[in-house]
Design a protein around this nucleic acid. Structure first.
Lengths: 317, 317
DNA sequence: TATCGTTATGCTCATTCTTAGTATAATCAG
DNA sequence: CTGATTATACTAAGAATGAGCATAACGATA
């Protein structure tokens, strides 16, 4: 049932990482070559496991310990097929969370806000005008551009599910599906190279940086996973400094989720679940009344494994 | 940053599948060689993508269309390291749901209830006596068997989180963690071969069939993913015949989740969410009052993509 | 120094969701 | 005809959620 693999079926493994950090309320991702690539490395024989392979070269590159690592997805890259005698490449991507950032301002690697790649995903200040003003009109045109009535209906429905009406029914977890829809509609290029070709007439490309290969898609996958995960596992503490105020914590979660949250309810949930404990200290870095400092109660991750976290991610806006 | 991979870093890809079907309220999984292996196949050059590779050989083997396929996990098998000139094997596993089963009663491949591999995971008839009577006592012994007080506390906590007290606080999603804990405690063998060695004194092995390599772990991963998934995506319809009664649907979900559900609330949720529509027909295959037949409203998967399903999986028992 | 803007924090209230039923209907076996 | 069995409608209590009011404590500034 498992015939001995032929030589030609040998592949090379490439590891990709979506490394996330958080600074000044911006969700950052580590990039190379002017933001065009995610860091990647080979999976070599000396690595006992895949995950240790990732940790090894990431920590060597960033010189910072990786707080949390999780496998994202594996795929055989269609953009780099088995050709000219090269072995086929299989990419395994990982999501990593890290508390501190590499030398700020460095060019390569460089931390960039992920909203530079997906500007329409930032709804922290309310519905993104990009969606209502640029994306939806063009998607609408795209939906109408098919003669097949059934197909037209299906397109409209997909648009509706993924983007809502531009004001309501926004689900931040659908970032990957939205990206794929935009790509299908020809509104975003799949790769940097593709962007350099002529833009079809009548199409105004949606803002947002492309990357090489399928790295932008991998990034979308990582963000999607993280956005989904924070709803049932308090992984966001991996991105926080040892001590923080509740507002800082809220801003961090908002940065990841890309949407605002109700302050009082956020606090209620966080301490109802016993996720934090006061350090006893206060801070007055901010302007108003000084806030208590808290630290994460790492124990609860064990205790709570059963229930998970709940976040007041204010329902579909 | 990505040095050209050396020849020695070439690997062979193996695809594994956890194929699930459902018959007479038993969750079935497709196995080979007397239940010792999950079906697996090579990833060959002719396959454009990984998923199409899986579909290709699975459908050839089972002669049934695969309703739903999802990638599970990728890992470099430690049990089959690069040795004697062989290339290292990287396994990519998939979860597949199928509506019909292969020739019933066949020996190879053969459908088996997954509870033969994880008997303690079946709580449909209430708390599994295996947990309270066999597993917990032995885990308790294991926890005490370390002198390090901190470690002891940590072990106790893990046991508590994963198994509850044998009666309450059972979370069906933790099947993988439970399996890993049992393995760590030496209560289940990792492989078939391992079982054949001498059992340590004082340890009564927990019932449940082992498999070869790490296939039992892969199976646990698949079940865990499926149990988690049905809570927010109505994938269980992929396992149902075209028409069914609400009780049949409930029994199906219970078979997957391994726990009983509240009948009235189950129905309420299912139709509140518009997941089904009556066919107009009744059935009296059962003894009592005839039940309406329903069919799945496939459209809602699109409409509902935002919200997902909700199931009255009666809270931690 | 009094006021204002700003942030922190405690508390309430209406609404919705869940859980756990009770009650009644419709069939079959005997 | 009776009891067992399954289907289905409906309800009451409690928990969780979403939204907001009210008050506290600070710095800046008039």
């Amino acid at each position: 049932m498992t015939p001995p693999p032929a030589i030609s079926d040998a592949v090379t493994i490439e590891l990709n990482a979506v490394l996330v950090a958080l600074t000044e309320n911006q969700p950052l991702v580590l990039t190379l070559e002017d933001g065009a690539l995610l860091p990647s490395g080979p999976f070599a024989t000396e690595h006992p496991t895949l995950q240790s392979g990732v940790r090894a070269w990431v920590e060597r590159q960033t010189r910072h310990p990786l707080g949390y690592v999780e496998q994202l997805y594996t795929f055989a890259d269609r953009n780099r097929p088995a050709s000219d005698g090269q072995r086929r490449v299989v990419s395994i991507s990982y999501l990593g969370l890290t508390r501190e950032r590499l030398s700020a301002g460095a060019r390569d690697p460089e931390w960039r806000s992920w909203y530079r790649y997906f500007p329409w995903e930032d709804w922290r200040a309310g519905p993104s005008p990009l969606v209502a003003q640029t994306i939806l009109p063009q998607l609408s045109t795209w939906a109408d551009a098919t003669v097949d009535a059934a197909k037209q209906r299906e397109r409209r429905q997909r648009i509706d599910v993924n983007f809502g009406d531009g004001v309501e029914n926004w689900n931040e977890d659908l970032i990957l599906q939205r990206y794929e829809l935009l790509y299908e509609a020809g509104l975003v290029p799949e790769t940097l190279e593709e962007r350099n070709r002529a833009t079809p007439p009548g199409i105004e490309p949606v803002p947002g940086m492309p990357m090489r290969h399928d790295h932008r898609r991998i990034l979308a996958t990582g963000i999607a996973r993280l956005r989904a995960k924070i709803k049932y596992r308090p992984v966001f503490f991996e991105l926080m400094p040892p001590e923080f105020t509740l507002l800082q914590l809220q801003r961090a979660v908002e940065a990841l989720a890309g949407r605002p949250m109700h302050k009082q309810n956020f606090r209620r949930l966080i301490d109802q679940q016993g996720l934090v404990e006061p350090t006893g200290a206060l801070t007055s870095e901010t302007r108003g009344r000084p806030a208590k400092l808290f630290r994460f109660r790492r124990e609860v991750v064990l205790e709570r494994a059963v229930q998970g976290t709940k976040l007041p991610l204010s329902r579909p806006i």
